[in-house]
Amino acid sequence: MQQRRTRHRATWATRLAWVLAAALAMTGCGGSNAGDTGTDTVKIGFVGSLSGTYQDVGQEMRDGFQLYLDTHDGRFGGRKVDLVVADEGNGAATALPAATRLVKDEHVAALAGIVASGSYLAISALATEHKIPLIGSNGRPDTDNSDWLWTTSFRSPDPGTAIAPYVKEHVDGPVWAIGPDYKGGYDQVGGFTDTYTKLGGKLANPAGKATWTPFPDTPNYLPYLSQIAKSDAKAVYAFFGGANAVGFVTQYRQSDAKNLPLYGAFLTEGPVLQQQGAAAEGIWNVLNYSPDLDNAANRTFIAEWTTRHADRSPTTYAMAAYDAAAVLDKAIARISGKVTPVKINEAIGQLGQIDSPRGAWQFSPKNHTPIQHWYLRVVRRDGTQLANRVVQDLATIGA
């Protein structure tokens, strides 16, 4: 983790040079370099929101996972991969039946993906019951761990925990906290409010409690924003993703609260940024990845991604799913003989540090979530496009 202080940020022009420089190396890219090169096939299940509120997030995750597989000859640990993809939809009601089919009918050796916290809670119980390793690649609810659960993304409270000290230091007065009314929203906003208030910060919300908006859809945020504008808030902290992030940010700039600094997690991540347009400029946000991080793993990732998705830069969702595939690749490479869920799970626990586009990280032995660094970003113009640009390091979180 020590190299994080020497990272530099790169423009898209620089990243284009990375693409050109890496092109020849990519043409020689084959399967994994280590492990059993047996001819048997490993069936892996991937669950992601391919419809609903978080469709953009699910697509990024699927594309990131598939990218790693495509650039490794369709193999993990030398074994051919049969990838079975299922639609998570909007939450547990659709996600659990999809995952159940993968476990009971498809007999997958491992599960990956999952966008929403509610989906994760339901599928994690399924995975634990059937002793199938689950490598989640989006928000991990703040819940107890089991031996079968792993996450390549983050614990849901972590982004708010990481940025709260910065907000406390730079905002002179109370902050209004707001997010969607579901488990992921509680964890995400709670990470901020718990840390911020422990540091002596005051919430501008009535009774000092965060404001919750209807989920999955809130078409009109203006009543909430009007309330914020009439309060003594000096800034706003928000968590929204997907279509909700577009609605909140665009209406924020139309409201009487528009001049208050806006901080948040995931507000401007992914395709939503271009949909928000100029309304997103100047938003401060916290994340564990940014395309402008200059390290070898990220240069390779950007090069591989751009050859397939030149119209969009990669996101933390794509990166975490890419890393989930890398974890499975490295774990299966350690297995001799037949690949089983038990062997995969044991091998994941032996991996140690993972080289990643975000920078090196490793699983916490306590809860199987990443020990990783977080970054403060701000939305600025990058040529003709809007981009999240890294401003500074924030904190390393994980235990």
Rank of each mutant, 00 (worst) to 15 (best):
K183Q: 15
T306P: 02
Y263S: 01
G38W: 01
L293Q: 07
R155E: 14
D172H: 14
E106I: 04
G173K: 07
S153E: 13
V85P: 12
E269K: 00
A13H: 10
D181M: 04
Y182T: 04
E60H: 12
A395G: 04
K230T: 13
T268R: 02
G352L: 06
A34C: 03
Y289V: 06
D40Q: 11
R358Y: 03
P133E: 09
L260H: 05
L134A: 12
R380Y: 03
D292M: 03
R381E: 12
G352C: 08
L16E: 14
Q362A: 12
T39Q: 13
S32Q: 08
I228W: 08
G201F: 02
R381K: 15
N259R: 05
A17S: 14
F363S: 06
G139P: 05
G200L: 07
Y68F: 15
I114F: 07
T268Y: 01
N285Q: 14
T218L: 09
A162G: 10
F76E: 10
V390T: 14
G48D: 05
K330I: 00
T151C: 15
A278G: 12
G91T: 02
S156A: 15
Y263W: 12
V171W: 09
K198V: 01
G160R: 02
D217Y: 09
Y120W: 12
A347D: 06
T213F: 03
Y317Q: 09
G184M: 06
T39E: 15
N285S: 15
P261R: 07
A125R: 13
P370W: 01
A265N: 10
G118P: 06
H8P: 03
Y375T: 01
G242Y: 03
V189G: 06
S336F: 02
V339W: 01
T161Q: 14
A99I: 00
L267W: 00
L121D: 10
V246Y: 08
V81E: 09
A204I: 01
A235N: 12
I354K: 02
L273A: 06
T306G: 06
T94R: 07
S51Y: 04
A204C: 07
G173R: 08
A296L: 11
G398W: 00
T195C: 08
R155C: 09
P180I: 00
T250M: 07
A116I: 05
A296I: 04
I371E: 11
